[in-house]
């Protein structure tokens, strides 16, 4: 699900369109914290794509929350 970058950050392996997987990941994530609504990109409210601890990258996003 995640790859570790050269800087030791966790990057989501599945890009920016894997809505089901991003929702699955967020479902049991203790670090999930919803971003402001204007920054949501998923229709599932609880999704890594809607978390304020995600940082978008060119291909995907980094998770800045607890591993």
């Amino acid at each position: 699900m995640w790859r570790i970058t050269k800087r030791g950050e966790r990057e989501f392996r599945h890009g920016q369109e894997a809505y089901g997987l991003a929702a699955d990941q967020a479902r049991f994530c203790e670090g999930f914290c919803p971003d402001v609504e204007d920054e949501w990109t998923a229709d599932e409210e609880r999704s890594c794509y809607n978390c304020r601890l995600r940082r978008w990258t060119v291909e995907s996003f980094l998770c800045l929350g607890p591993a």
């Binding site: 971003d35 920054e39 304020r52 601890l53 995600r54 940082r55 978008w56 990258t57 060119v58 800045l64």
Partner: peptide
């Protein structure tokens, strides 16, 4: 969104 652009998260 690019590695050379500083931004918080989006």
């Amino acid at each position: 969104v690019h590695p050379d652009v500083p931004y918080t998260s989006h």
